[in-house]
């Protein structure tokens, strides 16, 4: 292997240095006292723990420097338990260090590899026993067993099929329909265009039809953010501009990157920021991505007002909301 350079010679284990407690009985007694004091501190900790559990009310707060006003029960239960366990440990280690033998012992190490005889013996036995099973010769058994085992291992996967339904088109659909009113979240109040001042935002959801319930599954796709800016500030194609109403523009609040709620609207710069991964969207340019990992703008919801003047969706979203997936075209 290598041309081993000559090593410095091994001086061997250094001489054992005796501890004070090894030859001085007084020092040993002192160490014993220290260990038992540590164990007694653990006892005090357990007593404190029980006292805190039984007598400290859960609504009692005390002021502790650095920590501030702190719940007393939680603090004392914790400190009691900490002392109860920590001091057992410290005591045991101190005992081991000061009073148990501290002479280092040397144990021999043996190569893990088996003796050559044993290896040969094993190989011969294994081959002979394997052959006696007939498996190497009887290829029909070998193949059918392989097939059977292979197939049986598929069965758990089959059983897992009912974990969930197939996605079908559901990732592409939301509850927004043509004419759905936009209602505040929370509050469920319909809103008029005049309700929003310039620079105002509103978190909205589609209005529920009577008897309908809103689930988190709906919210996860339906959440929309309304923003009102001065109409002349839009830099939109005529088509997209027609999707807005009097300076009010509506975007899906579900980030196109990983689905967090994008709702950090900066009124002056008109940027929308996602707090999860800092994708930044420019509102006047139809939420174009100007920074961060998101690759697509937030889907824009086409809005208008109904006869009563309430804001409604003119059409459903024209693309799936939220993060990308394989089937998304």
């Amino acid at each position: 292997m290598s041309k081993e350079v000559e090593r410095l010679s091994d001086p061997g284990l250094p001489d054992h240095v005796h501890r004070k407690a090894d030859h001085d009985p007084a020092a040993a007694d002192k160490a014993e006292r220290q260990v038992s004091i540590l164990f007694m501190l653990s006892v005090v900790g357990t007593v404190g723990f029980i006292v805190a559990y039984v007598f400290v009310p859960s609504d009692k707060f005390i002021f502790v420097p650095v920590m501030g006003s702190t719940n007393a029960q939680q603090l004392f239960l914790g400190l009691g338990l900490a002392a109860a366990t920590l001091f057992i440990g410290l005591g045991a280690v101190h005992w081991a260090k000061t009073l148990m033998p501290d002479t280092e012992e040397v144990a021999e190490r043996h190569e893990l590899r088996s003796e050559e005889v044993d290896r040969q013996d094993f190989l011969a036995t294994f081959k002979a026993r394997g052959a006696s099973s007939g498996l190497p010769r009887r290829s029909l058994i070998k193949r059918t067993l392989g097939l059977a085992l292979g197939l049986v291992s598929v069965s758990p996967l089959i059983l897992l099929r009912d974990l969930g339904p197939l996605p079908k088109k559901s990732l592409e659909e939301t509850s927004w329909k043509s004419g759905t009113r936009l209602v505040t979240d929370p509050g469920d109040r319909p809103i008029k265009a005049s309700d929003l001042e310039i620079g105002a935002v509103a978190q909205v959801l589609p209005e529920l039809t009577p008897g309908e319930e809103r689930t988190l599954n709906n919210i996860a796709k339906d959440a929309v953010l309304l923003i009102r800016i001065r109409p002349e500030e839009f830099q939109l194609s005529p088509e997209r501009l027609s999707w807005t109403h009097e300076g009010i523009i509506a975007f899906s609040k579900i980030c196109t990157h990983m689905g967090c709620a994008v709702a950090l609207y900066e009124q002056q710069t008109k940027h929308l920021l996602c707090p999860c991964h800092q994708s930044t969207f420019d509102v006047p340019q139809a939420a174009k991505v100007i920074f961060g990992p998101a690759a697509r703008p937030l889907p824009q919801l086409e809005i208008t007002v109904d006869t009563e003047g309430y804001l409604i969706a003119r059409k459903p979203f024209n693309q799936p909301v939220g993060p990308s997936f394989w089937e998304r075209s």
Binding site: G78, L81, A82, L86, A92
Partner: peptide, 17 residues
């Protein structure tokens, strides 16, 4: 063995404060 109690104690201490 003692070190188990030490790890428990330190964790409990942090959880207390």
């Amino acid at each position: 063995g003692g070190f188990f109690f030490i790890v428990f104690g330190v964790t409990a201490f942090i959880a207390a404060v």
